[in-house]
Write a protein that binds this DNA or RNA. Structure first.
Length: 816
RNA sequence: GCGGAUGUGGUGAAAUGGCAGACACGCUAGACUUAGGAUCUAGUGCCGUAAGGUGUGGAGGUUCAAGUCCUCUCAUCCGCACCA
């Protein structure tokens, strides 16, 4: 029996396709499992990261099917997005053609890897049917006030010619093409995710235990809730007059109200409205205006290099001391956090300190260490004792925070305030290959929603993509339409949606029964049955963006009445990266391994086995060609040694007592592997140790020759391994067991009972020797035997303590 | 700076506080072969001929017993970051 991965894998892939083996059924009384992997972008070919991702989810799905669960294990394609347009620019292909031919190819790859995805539920987010329901949800959200349009400074990627969400700007550069991002003032649509800031934060508690701690922390930091004091600085009379009485002051936010008496200046962001007013009305000299313009035009990265600023020659009054405080513009003040203005306390804040040093501003200390002295050359930012703070002198700075906020509130000059780092989600993109935003601009009615019965607003196919500007805007006819409200000539919105919108609800769409796909996005009954996702598997790179947006959409859909739960993903497993030669596989580094080539050479089972065996799923996986060979050899042996099995339709009944030592040992190893397997799928996810257990069992089986033990061993081992290497296990199982063993297996406790056990003997905690005793031997006798066998180390010593750890070891504590 | 994680053989990695290195890769030797990048057998943490010693980034501590628990510390990786 020669192992041929090609023949055998093709056979089973056809069998599964013909039998619809992986379709969930619609009996909602059955226990269910929803196993989901993050769906791929149809880039053209799967990479090893995908293979790892789907191998893990497939193992879960197959395991739970064996255990009798109704399993939903769907796949789709996150198919809108810029690479399709980039390919269009590069090779003149149409984004749609490019996308769907990639999808076809990748579906073939899924099949050749033996992934047990539901075929009927496959979808692509660029399907018009998907767009239709998504646009419907957008309209719902607009009606709820969760979507709005406003002008603002946006992150603009000059290379992609589009707006980016804050989340898509990494270190000042575009997340896709790495171009330096600039600020641009334009209209944009926003989701009001900040309205859910508190809930997105507090519900993280519900995910504890199910989600990796790291991801929870990342989301927590991203939401960035902080508490503090908000109050108003009022201009003095001279300043007010200089500003033509247009402004009487500005709000600031601080998390350190305890340092209020140390304020020595205040700073505005270069984009602050007061600064803009002064520039527009020429209230500043040319030199100052030039400096401010320079600050505005500097990218956020460069701004971090050195602090700079200019004085505005304005003054405000300190709210408590009534002293005059000068106003500066500073490049480190961010317009989009808080109010775009800060009080500055150089003595107790590193940034304020650097700035004060550079421009020779006063440094007024008001907090001192409990012991020791203040240093002159850096800010003291720790907890200490207040001084120079009038009635608050002597307080612990931590306690002073609340007391000072209370004082401001009592005097009616400030309020306690919660601030979020999270900002509203800008969702419009000036691109072609995305879901059109279903709005119309009408001269009479303004911004009007499209009627739901007109959905989907589909993309035109006859477009020219050059990379310059928005192809939809340039299309000769597409944007011209009638106003849905008054019927007059109007113009369609030509912006399309951020592709993260599609991935924010695809897991709900999968719950819908395909027979109703045309009529509804999903039904509440189906959603209630399948959700939440039991295991969600994907890359850590989505820890913030996708997972936060998906949580947001879930809460919005709940408030729209479509669903009735709070969180979409019960358990999240973030897989580690696939490395080669210590670095992440990437085309630019030239260290990629092509999954198709591995399948061609060794077969899908080998690829799957190696991936699950080489490292636990959450850790990085180092690709190793010779270890892949090793996986292949194991499968080959596993297949060839199956000739030791005697054909049977039920697990052989074995009289354990009558077996030889080797036979007993083999059975023990087999059942140990079974126990391990159940642990792995249940909670630990350490497939590597489960596979090691199976290998040990194989080694033990091979050391004996009882055909019943062989048969029983394979009955169990092929069942355990089917989720990992489904093709070869199905082949063996159908050949010898009529596929009857691919179900949950019972653990026989009798094989773990030993009549003789080996105990380690240690002296002073150091392993010295071993003894063999009857398993029911008395402690007394064990100790006697142990002392005899360790006699040579005990000579001339006194035993001060004797410890027997049942079934493990004996420890003797001695001294001279 | 803040937060999270990880440090164990030549390599990937195992170890409910109980004989560290399971399992695998690699390597060494042998067997079978015309041949071996196939297969099988044996060995393989380090030092040492051996007895033995030593060993989980480092330093302390708790314990009969520590890779595992506690304190400090070093290194690497990841995320966020002028967030007031």
């Amino acid at each position: 029996m020669e192992y041929s991965s090609k023949k055998l894998e093709k056979k089973w892939q056809e069998y599964w396709a013909q039998n619809g083996s992986f379709e969930p059924n619609e009996d909602f009384t059955k226990a269910k499992k929803y196993i989901l992997s993050m769906f791929p972008f149809p880039s053209g070919r799967l990479h090893m990261g995908h293979v790892r991702n789907y191998t893990i989810s497939d193992a879960f799905a197959r395991y739970y099917r064996q255990q009798g669960f109704n399993v939903l294990h769907p796949i789709g394609f996150d198919s809108f997005g810029m690479p399709a347009e980039n390919a269009a620019i590069k090779n003149g292909s149409h984004p749609k053609t490019w996308t769907y031919s990639n999808i076809d190819y990748m579906k073939g790859e899924f099949k050749s890897l033996g992934f047990s995805f539901s075929k009927e539920r496959e979808l692509a987010t660029s399907d018009e049917l998907y767009t239709k329901f998504e646009q419907g949800f957008i309209i719902d959200m607009y009606e709820k006030g969760l979507l709005y349009r406003k002008k603002g400074f946006l992150n603009w990627c000059p290379s992609c010619q589009t707006v980016l969400a804050n989340e898509q700007v990494l270190e000042g550069s575009c997340w896709r093409c790495d171009t330096n991002v600039v600020k641009k003032d334009m209209n944009q649509y926003y989701f009001k995710i900040t309205q859910y800031g508190d809930e997105l934060l507090s519900d993280l508690a519900k995910l504890e235990g199910g989600w990796p701690k790291q991801v929870l922390t990342m989301q927590e930091n991203w939401i960035g809730k902080s508490y503090g004091l908000e109050f108003k600085f009022s201009f003095d009379i001279a300043s007010r007059e200089r500003l033509n009485n247009k402004f009487d002051g500005f709000e600031v936010f601080t998390t350190r109200p305890d340092t209020i008496y140390g304020v020595s200046y205040a700073a505005l962001a270069p984009e602050h409205e007061i600064v803009n007013y002064m520039i527009e009305n020429l209230l500043l000299d040319d030199d100052t205006i030039i400096k401010i313009q320079e600050m505005k035009n500097t990218s956020s990265i460069d701004r971090q290099k050195e602090k700079s600023g200019v004085s505005l020659n304005l003054n405000v009054t300190h709210p408590l001391t009534k002293k005059s405080v000068p106003i500066w513009v500073a490049n480190f003040v961010l317009m989009d956090y808080g109010s775009g203005a800060v009080m500055a306390v150089p003595a107790h804040d590193d940034r304020d300190f650097d700035f004060a040093k550079k421009y020779n501003l006063p440094i007024n200390a008001v907090i001192k260490p409990f012991n020791g002295d203040l240093s002159d050359d850096k800010a003291f930012t720790e907890v200490g004792e207040l001084f120079n703070s009038e009635s608050f002198n002597g307080l612990n700075s931590k306690d002073a925070q609340g007391k000072i906020i209370d004082y401001f509130e009592a005097q009616n000059i400030g309020t306690k305030k919660t601030n979020f780092r999270l900002k509203d989600w800008g969702v419009s993109r000036q691109r072609y290959w995305g879901a059109p935003i279903p709005f119309v601009h009408c001269d009479s009615c303004g911004l009007v929603m499209e009627k739901k019965e007109n959905l989907p607003i589909a993309l035109p196919e006859d477009i020219v993509i050059t990379g310059e500007g928005n192809p939809l805007d340039k299309h000769p006819t597409w944007k011209h339409c009638k106003c849905p409200s008054c019927g007059k000539d109007a113009v369609r919105e030509t912006d399309t949606m951020d592709t993260f919108v599609e991935s924010s609800w695809y897991f709900l769409r999968f719950c819908a029964s395909p027979k109703n796909w045309q009529d509804e996005a999903f039904s509440k009954e189906q959603i209630e049955y399948w959700m939440s996702v039991d295991h969600y598997i994907g890359g850590i790179e989505h820890a913030i963006l996708h997972l936060l947006y998906a949580r947001f959409f879930t809460k919005v859909f709940r408030d729209l009445g479509y669903i009735s739960f709070d969180e979409p993903f019960n358990k999240l497993l973030t897989q580690g990266m696939v490395l080669k030669d210590g670095a992440k596989m990437s085309k630019s580094k030239g260290n990629t391994v092509d999954p198709d080539a591995i399948i061609e050479k060794y077969g899908a089972d080998t690829a799957r086995l190696f991936i699950l065996f080489a490292a636990p799923p959450t850790q990085e996986l180092e690709w190793n060609d010779s270890a892949v060979e090793g996986a292949y050899r194991f499968i080959k042996r596993f297949y060839e040694r199956s000739s030791n099995i005697v054909k049977t339709d039920s697990i052989p009944q074995i009289d354990h007592g009558s077996l030889s030592k080797d036979e007993k040992f083999a059975r023990k190893k087999v059942y140990e592997a079974l126990v391990r397997a159940n642990d792995v799928y249940g909670e630990k996810y350490t497939f590597n140790t489960m596979i090691a257990g199976v290998m040990e069992a194989m080694n033990a089986l091979n050391a004996q020759s009882n055909s019943d033990v062989w048969s029983e061993g394979y009955w169990i081992l092929t069942s355990i391994m089917e989720p990992v290497i489904p093709h070869v296990c199905s082949e063996i199982s159908s050949e010898y067991f009529s596929l009857k063993n691919l179900t949950s297996q019972r653990v026989l406790e009798e094989v773990f009972v030993e009549n003789v056990i080996i105990l380690g003997v240690s002296i002073n905690g150091k392993a010295r020797t071993e003894i063999e005793v009857a398993s029911d031997e008395s402690q007394e006798n064990i100790m006697k035997i142990a002392k005899e066998s360790a006699a040579k180390w005990l000579e001339g010593k006194t035993i001060v303590k004797e410890i027997v750890v049942p079934k493990k070891l004996v420890n003797l504590v001695i001294k001279d």
